[in-house]
Design a protein around this nucleic acid. Structure first.
Lengths: 181, 181
DNA sequence: GAATATACGGAGCACTGCTCCGATTTGTCA
DNA sequence: TGACAAATCGGAGCAGTGCTCCGTATATTC
């Protein structure tokens, strides 16, 4: 990679992060390029699709949340590990508005730049879920895809003006759908 | 209302219904106008906002689902009435893709053309919910807004390619968050 | 310092929502 | 019936979007 390309890539990523934090995952790509002092073609060369840009932006976070699942599996009991991870994962998605729709599309599309990260995240959750089910504290009819869907749904609800304020409460409500009473 | 205006209004509504059924709630307004053989200005005069168009499209459905709640309250027990209405209401939203985001925005915005219909729907669900809670079969911490949010979340999940096929299963899962075990 | 491969920038295309206003049609009243 | 006023229409025009393409400029290599 050429030196100027590397510099543009890094700068672009920084500007994109700020833009996505402020305007959500559907921030204007033109604005990002302009704000980075770079042509639109340059942005598209480095990030051919919006998913590629999001992947570059979120990759570390995905990995950290997935790894956190294994940490919790070691340190906590089946029930606490699942609930804590579910909560932390959900909270993490709250940072980036509108990221949940591309994620739901990506997990179904192996060509998407976000696909692998989403699959990794789902698998991490599924491990904790199975463990909790084996311990008899989670409902047996729920699977990893359901858990992923619930996380995405909570993120979506957090993006909606009418339910953003009660996100924590909705998390508690949805937790009852996963846990055995 | 002038005769030509009335004719355009009705025709526009028919074309819009087909377009929304096929392309979802964010169907191109230009396409709808073109397909109806009408200028864009005409469409905007009859339906000043997209919400106004959706309200005209969905008003009957909103009213029918709300009324259905009272029917079920008369005919069924607290638990069955709630679950059946929850299911029917959710299924109804499946007919129109992408309608849930504008609904969630509308219920918070009294100026929106969809506001009243959304409030009516939420109130209908809340009546059945309170009845079920008084009978001890629904969780006391859930309220009407939560129920509305769950319906919207299920509709959103149904719009996503990765979870559309398991919509019924997700309904069963989320029902456990509303009902007492 | 010259040659080559790499990367850049932005004009251009097709689409979107939405506004505005001159042209047209309808209903009314003499 | 015919003229007039009010209601309605149609689409050009503006600003924004995603995305492509290619002439130009820059970095690296020899």
């Amino acid at each position: 990679m050429r030196a100027d390309a590397r510099k543009n890539y890094d700068h672009l990523l920084g500007v994109a992060r700020a833009a996505v934090l402020e305007h959500g995952a559907d921030a204007s790509l033109r604005d990002i390029a302009r704000q980075a002092g770079v042509g639109l073609g340059t942005l598209y060369r480095h990030f051919p699709t919006r998913e590629a840009l999001l992947e570059a932006l979120l990759h570390e976070g995905f990995a950290a949340v997935a790894e956190r699942a294994d940490e919790l599996a070691d340190s906590d009991g089946p029930r606490d590990a699942l609930v804590t991870w579910f909560r932390e994962c959900t909270r993490w998605t709250y940072e980036y508005r509108g990221v949940t729709t591309p994620m739901m599309a990506a997990i179904e599309d192996p060509e998407s730049a976000l696909h692998d990260s989403c699959v990794t995240l789902r698998a991490a959750g599924a491990r904790l879920l199975v463990r909790a089910q084996e311990a008899g504290v989670a409902r047996p009819e729920v699977d990893g895809t359901d858990l992923f869907a619930l996380i995405a749904a909570l993120a979506w609800l957090h993006d909606q003006p009418s339910t953003a304020a009660r996100a924590d409460h909705l998390f508690d409500v949805l937790t009852r759908a996963v846990l055995r009473d």
